[in-house]
Design a binder for these strands. Structure first.
Lengths: 252, 252
DNA sequence: GTCGTTGTTGCATCATATGCAACACCCATT
DNA sequence: AATGGGTGTTGCATATGATGCAACAACGAC
């Protein structure tokens, strides 16, 4: 809508791929060097880009600070955190909290496993949307046409032999999840890692976030992990209740 | 330099403090509602802001993705990571990697302690600049006038009784660190936590990053932690060597 | 020394961002 | 139901402010 801002913002993903100098930026934006310079300067003033010694531009520190502040101010996260810690203390495994936003699912909190084996995941990192338990929970709550639309648009990478293979299978899985009110990921992302998850609902019953417990085969089998299901669901429900309490139900 | 972009970007820190509706944004920017709307729309198209159900705007998911990509593309981080993991495996404590950028020091990597006690810190989070071992290392490498300028501008919060109290003490500490080539933080940030750190240098000898090992009193005393110093320095030197190798020394 | 490359500045032009005013919409109130 | 305040949205005329140009500066390479 605003050409100038649009151009300026287009610089960010461009720099996310690696540093670039003025000429490269100008060329890839399709504008004159002087224009690119002014845009970069403005971004620089706001700390979103940084100029390294060799004059090339990089994404800047403020970006991290912003992302950090944003995640810390999410009210679901605030409320859920102590519950997640408590759950981690009683079972010892890695606990994740995630939300859905514009076609993406992302982790907004994480409590690390107390076992030496740790998973690779990071707050802010987009989740493997077609296989993760939390992703299934969040997508399962969308309306039927929305689910279908999203499912069609996704890629279905076969991380393992048990990954969700295609849109059809995914939609079927979502229906199951929707009905049973919980979800699993049994080796669908990494062969040796299983997860079970449960939804967190707002006052209106809509799913606002999802949580999961993950553990590698070497620590507990999938069956043993499933015995934690009641505990996980209770935790999720506690969070839901507290969250519904603090949010004024804008109309049921 | 570019008014439009400047205004648009000013919206981000504003939203970082919490969600806001159109009117609030317009007011705090000092522009007409319709102007604010168009700016927000542009930010929205780029995924930097998100519109929640109640119509209010929040910071968006793309912000996380960008911060994530940015940190993953830092070449120092790439090179250092395996060394940090190795160090963690041999000593068991939390290992941090940090860089300095525009008056700020921030963590760009972290390997969690294998002990049950964990520290609060997070990648992307600005470091307590006046006390952290990594901060001292990074600032100690600046030129004398720069050090002085930065030191004057900082606040010196007394996290504990052993925090750096003022600019004078800080500058003195930086001189020490500069000469000895390593740094400590003995309970200066949190009473019970000690750190030791060493600098990572580029081909030209300038400090490009700093790493540290942190451990709480309850696990090892400060003296015991200091016995790790040679190991930490060796690790930092290995990283420096590897980093210098891959970066073409742009002129020694 | 000169050439090539890259970043920077001042300026004239007009594209484009702006504020206005009118409209659409949703709730709350009576 | 009807009215009124609040909020978000659109079209449009105006002039602000972003743009590309061309000339300059800084730096290295040859």
């Amino acid at each position: 809508m605003s050409q100038t801002v649009d151009r300026a913002l287009s610089i960010l993903p461009l720099l996310a791929q690696g540093p670039a100098d003025l000429g490269q930026v100008a060329e890839r934006l399709g504008v004159h060097k002087s224009t690119a310079l002014r845009l970069l300067r403005t971004l620089h003033e706001h700390g979103l880009v940084y100029r390294q010694q060799d004059q090339r531009y990089r994404l800047g520190a403020r970006l991290f600070a912003l992302a950090q502040e944003a995640v810390e101010n999410l009210d679901v996260r605030e409320i859920a955190h102590p519950h997640l810690v408590e759950l981690n203390e009683s079972c010892g495994h890695t606990v994740h909290l995630a939300v859905y936003e514009e076609q993406e699912v992302l982790y907004i909190d994480k409590v690390e496993s107390r076992y030496p084996v740790r998973m690779y995941s990071r707050i802010g990192k987009p989740v493997a949307i077609t296989v993760a338990a939390v992703a299934k929970l969040l997508l399962a709550d969308l309306s039927e046409p929305e689910r279908r639309a999203v499912a069609e648009k996704l890629d279905y990478p076969m991380y393992t032999s048990r990954s969700t293979p295609n849109a059809g299978a995914f939609l079927k899985e979502l229906t199951v999840v929707r009905e049973q009110g919980w979800a699993t990921d049994l080796g669908g992302h990494e062969e040796s890692i299983n997860c079970i998850g449960a939804p967190i609902r707002g006052a209106d019953g809509r799913v606002v976030a999802a949580m999961s417990v993950s553990a590698p085969n070497v620590v507990v089998t999938a069956e043993e992990l499933l015995t934690l299901l009641p505990l996980v669901r209770r935790t999720a429900d506690s969070i839901s209740r507290e969250y519904s309490g603090t949010t004024r139900p804008e109309k049921a």
